[in-house]
Amino acid sequence: MSKEDISRRQFLNYTLTGVGGFMAAGMLMPMVRFALDPILKEGSDQKMVAVTSIEELSNEPKRFDFKIKQKDGWYESDVTQSAWVYKAKNGDIIALSPICKHLGCTVDWNTDPSHPNQFFCPCHLGRYTKDGTNVKGTAPLAPLDVYESQVKDGKLYLGKAKPRKGA
């Protein structure tokens, strides 16, 4: 109640600690952020992109192109990516990356007349079965990457393409 509740000394102590704390935080925060930056960045890359409505999908792989934002330092660019998408027998939606695991050409579905119903890479005649497994004896040594996928409100969202173990 009285004026002596808080002494002049205490008051100065409190205010100085407060102000000093802010100053220290102001100096330390950028440093901490700087150290953690790569970790914080990772999250923003994980965004899923809407690619198509699921009604358009069938048992036959179909190619969809979509754009993702790629950050390279300060430079942000749109990169076109493609996916081969189909419904498996059990109803699962499979989205395969079209990037050949050999040297990175784009594979096509069912374009090699002598090997129907396979993914075919025109560059070095690599082949993959429908589930993306590389055919032994052809150039590629690993199966096609699989996109993380998610269905929301009847739309298919794709995330990152994840590599799988070789056959």
Binding site: H102, L103, G104, C105, T106, C123
Partner: peptide
């Protein structure tokens, strides 16, 4: 180049 860069 995007589609065939394994050979081109």
């Amino acid at each position: 180049e995007r589609q065939l860069h394994g050979r081109m």
